[in-house]
Nucleic acid binder design. Structure first.
Length: 781
DNA sequence: GAGTTTGAAACT
DNA sequence: CAGTTTCAAACTC
């Protein structure tokens, strides 16, 4: 986007330098690879529906990810590391890693040189990519981490690419390596699919998969495939296509790529003497598969066929699944699942999947990471409106049984992940992976697979259950030390003892997610196995209060005052939908939902002694020291207490100031996220902001710590048929709905307060802001 | 980690 | 709808 221009120029300049360099020429001569056309590349990236959220994306981030891989490919060629050819797979991996690492996390220019020096195509654009990649190199590790499916898993396993990979080198094809490989494979597939390659059939259903076609197609579309990913793909393809052998595959690839100059990447990575690597790799994987037919296959209830090909495929799927599967399903997702299930039976999975994908694409991926850098600590919430989905289900009255197929679950998971896009756009990778893998899901269902909750949860869950089961250590890592008990960036964890997690007291339940392992709840019913109960209870609560699961904080249009709704001139552009009722906290503590949500109190609040730093009920804004000087508006005036309050306020203010994102509540685009909750680093418990349908949907789950909230009624009135549209998020604004809660509290539909610009609002406050559901015109540094 | 405080949710 | 109770998070020590 806007950010690219400068870089581009710079890159070009750099490139020129390179090209003028004797060294460059020399290298260039050595390399048969031709420059890649930028246009193609661009197109490729843009066309990656999945991972590239709209425009927004563009993103350097998404791009960077791919590019990085891309880059890695370049570095892979053994040309520069001849020794590798004879090494075993692990060794190779290690080397690759090393290279990748050097290119990823280090110096840019050097890296670029290195890449160029390796005979990698150095077309202007290519260089550009490389360069770009370098720019975001620091993000890669994390990206990779997520790519591997689990944050928890991340740091240790995949988080730091260099480290993880290196670790791998020392292990015999471990789980880690395994997962990693699969992730890549799936990623590639996802990319290919995204390209709109109709003939790519991951399942290989109906006939031998058209790998040749796939390759050609990939080449034709200028799909960038990194060596490793490709290897995985090739491997998979081999496994799937009994008629094709690896030896045949590589030549094919070469041939295919040779027809397209742009395919240099592939050629470079695969053709350049990597066949051996691939074979090794494949055999390694095969060996693993053969010797370790276990866990996932069993867990997923996947088939253990006698057909090696199938077996492998299953394994791959399950592994990937393993990384992502678990629990990203929330209640709503359960519904989705069901719906999907129904749809699948009727129209075929492809349609449904694509729908989901589209929804995801349009609603969530976008924002991905505009502010990734700055918001890294924030949990971006990108999500699909689960409630809406649930609604669909309800309307359809279709309820599939617990026997939901794994595919469904998987899809749900994928969606959730997508939705959740937890922390960074980098999660998108995960999404993409999961989605692609979903296609391959083994139809044999596994009830054991839990629906996912919010992305974070899912990830956390995975980490906890999938990867950490045997490793308390990892588990601990997953918890991220500083995280307060309840949430891990988007992960909710409750501690309910009496509510069975079926009341709004339960944060998980209120957020529309299932409780997960990290929860300390007792007698919890908020689990997939009690899905019916959960849904029922949920319905009951909604019948009482239609907006019970709606986001508590509604953010109005950035540029449009909350006229009518909030007569007060409070600075905040967002308001708690119902207002608080604080008596003693002066709205300066998280007891106050307004404060917790990072919004000012409004006329609808019944609080006493409001001193909300985000905006007082009386309309004054006490920000910064200002607040201290402001008159003490209300009752509380008791010395010590007052001091305590002031202290708190000051502290909060300081926190605010610390947050680069939050400069002031008054700011229209006030960052929702980095709230002043620094005291414990915990984001607001449950706030979601919604505004645009798209934003709304997008924001949910994933995002936050609080995850998905579900919003309900307003969308529930939407006919099933329209759901897709809703998911699309673009659509027309939903009619403003104002309702009264049973108890007379004012409840207005989030939409009522929605602003004119749909693009900006989104899920939880924190997230949306940082992650616009649509390409934001405003550059985020 | 236990106990207290707080205010939302639930109940009457 | 108001008052009360229950509940679990937030907070304090």
């Amino acid at each position: 986007m806007d950010m690219d221009t400068p870089e581009r120029n710079q890159i070009n300049t750099t490139l020129s330098k390179f090209e003028d360099s004797p060294v460059f020429n020399y290298i260039n001569n050595l390399s048969p690879i031709k420059p890649v056309k930028s246009a193609h590349i661009t197109q490729t990236f843009n066309s990656l529906t999945f991972s590239s959220p709209p425009s927004v994306f563009t993103s350097p981030h998404v791009a960077s990810l791919k590019e990085s891989r891309f880059l890695r490919l370049h570095s892979l060629p053994s040309a520069s590391k001849p020794k590798d050819s004879s090494e075993d797979v692990n060794k190779v991996y290690s080397n690759e890693v090393a290279l990748a690492d050097s290119s990823l996390s280090q110096h840019n220019s050097c890296e670029l040189h290195e890449s160029a020096g390796k005979g990698i195509s150095v077309g202007d654009d290519t260089v550009e990519l490389s360069n770009k990649q370098t720019k975001f190199s620091d993000e890669l590790p994390q990206a990779l981490q997520y790519n591997c499916g689990s944050p928890g898993y991340g740091p240790t396993l995949c988080g730091d690419e260099a480290n993880s990979l290196l670790e791998l080198s020392g292990e015999a094809v471990s789980d880690v390596a395994y997962v990693r490989e699969n992730c890549k494979t799936d990623s590639v597939e996802a990319e290919l699919h995204l390209q709109g390659t109709s003939h790519i059939d991951p399942k290989g259903e109906g006939s031998d998969c058209d790998w040749e076609g796939l390759i050609h197609n990939a080449a034709a579309n200028d799909v960038l495939i990194d060596a490793e990913a490709f290897k995985g793909l090739a491997f998979k393809g081999l496994m799937q296509c009994s008629s094709m052998r690896l030896s045949d595959f590589v030549p094919l690839l070469q041939q295919s790529t040779s027809h397209h100059d742009q395919k240099i990447h592939m050629v470079d990575s695969v053709a350049s003497g990597s066949e051996h690597e691939i074979e090794n790799h494949c055999s390694e994987l095969v060996a693993v598969t053969d010797t370790d037919p276990t866990q996932d296959s069993l867990a997923n209830g996947s088939l253990m066929t006698n057909n090696p090909n199938e077996k492998m495929d299953n394994e791959l799927v399950s592994v990937t699944h393993r990384g992502i599967r678990r629990r990203c399903l929330d209640f709503e997702m359960a519904s989705v699942r069901k719906k999907i299930s129904d749809d699948n039976s009727n129209t075929g999975s492809s349609t449904t999947q694509s729908e989901v994908r589209n929804a995801v694409n349009e609603n969530q991926l976008l924002p991905a990471k505009r502010n990734a850098d700055s918001q890294r600590c924030i949990l971006p919430g990108i999500g699909l409106h689960l409630n809406a989905l649930a609604t669909v289900k309800d309307h359809k009255g279709k309820q599939s049984e617990n026997a939901t197929s794994e595919r469904q679950l998987s899809l749900a998971n994928s969606t959730s992940l997508l939705l959740s896009a937890c922390q960074d756009h980098q999660h998108l990778s995960v999404v993409s992976v999961s989605v692609s893998s979903e296609r391959e899901l083994d139809p044999t269902s596994d009830n054991g697979v839990q629906p996912a909750e919010d992305c974070s949860q899912a990830l956390a869950y995975m980490a906890a259950e999938d990867f950490n089961q045997n490793s308390p250590k990892k588990k601990r890592q997953m918890k991220r030390k500083s995280e307060p008990v309840g949430e891990i960036e988007g992960c909710k964890r409750c501690n309910c003892k009496k509510s069975k997690c079926l009341k709004l007291y339960c944060e998980c339940f209120a957020a529309g997610v299932y409780c997960i392992e990290p929860c300390s709840c007792q007698e919890c019913f908020n689990k997939p196995i009690h899905e019916d109960t959960v849904l029922q209870t949920r319905k009951q609560i909604e019948s009482r209060n239609p907006l019970a699961f709606a986001p508590k904080v509604i953010r109005s249009a950035d540029s449009v005052p909350d006229v009518g709704i909030d007569p007060n001139k409070t600075p905040a552009s967002a308001r708690h939908k119902r207002g608080c009722n604080c008596k003693k906290s002066s709205c300066l503590k998280k007891y106050c939902e307004c404060y917790q949500g990072g919004v000012g109190c409004s006329i609808s609040c019944r609080c006493e002694g409001c001193k909300n730093a985000f905006g007082r009920k009386d309309g004054s804004a006490s920000i910064g020291i200002e607040g201290e000087t402001e008159e003490e508006t209300e009752t509380s005036d008791k010395g010590v207490e007052e001091k305590a309050i002031q202290k708190t306020e000051i502290q909060n203010i300081e926190d605010h100031q610390e947050s680069s994102l939050v400069s002031t509540p008054l700011r229209l685009s006030r960052p929702l996220l980095p709230m002043p909750f620094s005291s414990k680093g915990k984001p607001p418990r449950s706030f979601v902001t919604t505004i645009t349908s798209s934003g709304y949907f997008a924001s949910q789950k994933l995002a936050m710590p609080n995850s998905l909230w579900s919003q309900s009624k307003p969308f529930q009135t939407v006919p099933d048929d329209e759901m897709p549209e809703i998911l699309r998020g673009d659509s027309s604004p939903i009619a403003c709905i104002k309702t009264l809660s049973p108890n007379g509290k004012r409840i207005s539909s989030p939409n009522c307060e929605r602003g004119s610009s749909p693009a900006r609002r989104g899920g939880r406050k924190l997230i949306l802001q940082s992650i616009p559901s649509f390409p934001s015109l405003t550059p985020h540094p």
